[in-house]
Design a protein around this nucleic acid. Sequence first.
DNA 1: CTGTTAGCGCATTCAG
DNA 2: CTGAATGCGCTAACAG
Lengths: 339, 339
Amino acid sequence: MKTAQKKVTIRDVAQRAGVSYGTVSRYLNGNDHVSQDASDRIAAAIDELKYTPNRAARSLAQQRTSTVALIIQVESNETIVQSSVSEAMAGANQTLGDAGYQMVTLIANTEDSTRRIAQLVRSDFADGYLLFSLSNDDSLANTFLGVDRPVVRSEISDRGDLPYPAVDFANADGQRNVTRYLLNKGRDALVYVCGPGYSPSSVNRLEGFKQAMGERFDERQVYYADDWEITSGEMAAVEFQPMLDHINGFVCANDNIAVGVINQLTRFGYRVPEDIAVTGFDDSPLAIMANPKLTTVRQDSISHGRVMAELLLAMMRGEQVEDHYVRLLPTSIVERESA
Amino acid sequence: MKTAQKKVTIRDVAQRAGVSYGTVSRYLNGNDHVSQDASDRIAAAIDELKYTPNRAARSLAQQRTSTVALIIQVESNETIVQSSVSEAMAGANQTLGDAGYQMVTLIANTEDSTRRIAQLVRSDFADGYLLFSLSNDDSLANTFLGVDRPVVRSEISDRGDLPYPAVDFANADGQRNVTRYLLNKGRDALVYVCGPGYSPSSVNRLEGFKQAMGERFDERQVYYADDWEITSGEMAAVEFQPMLDHINGFVCANDNIAVGVINQLTRFGYRVPEDIAVTGFDDSPLAIMANPKLTTVRQDSISHGRVMAELLLAMMRGEQVEDHYVRLLPTSIVERESA
DNA sequence: CTGTTAGCGCATTCAG
DNA sequence: CTGAATGCGCTAACAG
């Protein structure tokens, strides 16, 4: 049923409207002076011909794409089901859209796709980049060093050679505050379940715990997990089993781990929070599904995305941002049942 | 530190290599005959100059973009945390990448973004489209009617005017099978918790239940939920409370709902599965986190994405696909604890 | 206010 | 096998 309707170009519109195509271009790009009469005729022609400017041609002439790429780098073959990422995407999408940019997201989850995306970036695919590194592999970040387009990262990097600004949560503050919250409730025998070592967030959250514990901190109080998953929480609880009678609180690096700890503690016959309190981090959907419901540290991921987008927009506007600039977003404690 | 290195073009490479830029173009596009000598020099020049072809220019000249857009349409401001979508994305990304296409995903979650994406599509943004409609609003699909690019949908549509092929799971079969599984186990007093009415999957799953029940089916056995969430499952259990003593099985439209049912049943003092069996659908990560672990219908979402991509690739290759073509993917029962 | 012109960077004829 | 010429569809600078 497809009438192979020849591609309608700006010239067709011009002809139909009885003006030169330069005028149509001016009309399309808003600004300049086009007579009311011409405008009307052009508008009519565009409508009748169902004309839409060709994107590639416009990008080529303008040297800009009006798109921003959100790149998510994850471990090989892992899928992205983190609500925080999804929410950040929504926040960024909204902000960028309002500013006239189309956000497109790219997933780098294999060596191939990473290489392909690196190539894409070098070919001027987008006007700016939002970079989410959920993995240890930071290789993609280097790609941007040779590219003259602004980049904003979603977490502070421990690599000093990457100058890109970052927007992240005040992870240390959050974990410090919730640890103090436990201490103030008389929970004086705390242990910590740390996230994977490669993650800056993980490191920072542990740091917060240390700060709150001060003198009392002891390396034997912490279990180092390999990932952020529930099973890691279960393993941590098993690891601490011998001393469980002398422990009255678990501070966990995230909600998943906290749920794992609770599950295992329950199996061992301990009551949460009566015997042992447990706190999470993220306030993920899991937090309210857990039993008991998790007391956790909330972060507003939507505004994470929004703030990243705003920073990027400013940079694309030409505003200078100092190297290694970091913007930290606040967190808050959500009191539920587990602590 | 950015040395505003002038954009290096194909001409720079040609000059550096001592050939005309037509030759470089030929070299880049693989095919034709370029002497070994020239090839070597060009390769060297490209390397030294760190040349990467400009994307917009190439698209313009070639009339193709080498990208495929995966468009996700969701309810206003909802975020996408469905593991099935995430997995399908990964599967499609892999397949498309192997075929030389870059997959980019676009999110349509507001009226604005939907309009913007419609515009994008009409401007020849990509060579093909993968369309995931997670929402009632199917407006975006119409956009493609005027576009001469292949489209593949992720679920069968109930709208006859949309001719695009679709790849979906055999939802009816899956639900029929798991219902029979319960019946065979002697669970003869079943009720059904249906998903939101706007979803084709939801309708099809209900149909499967009806098929398995045959004569025994009774409208009073089904609760119609408004969404796919846990709370809907809880509400369903509350709704059925008066007759709970005479029910020995819940067949649920998805895992979330099943978890909600289990939670509420537990609160009411019923044991799952001893008193009442409960089944889910999707085999989402939630299924193994539930207590008891969910018996559910598994669907391989990664291959969902892969098959969609393969179909799209075939269409982009020029293969004809009949209107309303539907490819149904098999499901399987995963026996765990809840039934 | 509007028509004309010269590129944007590359693919692709067509000669040679 | 390779150089030169055209055009993809549009923007922007320049005259008028």
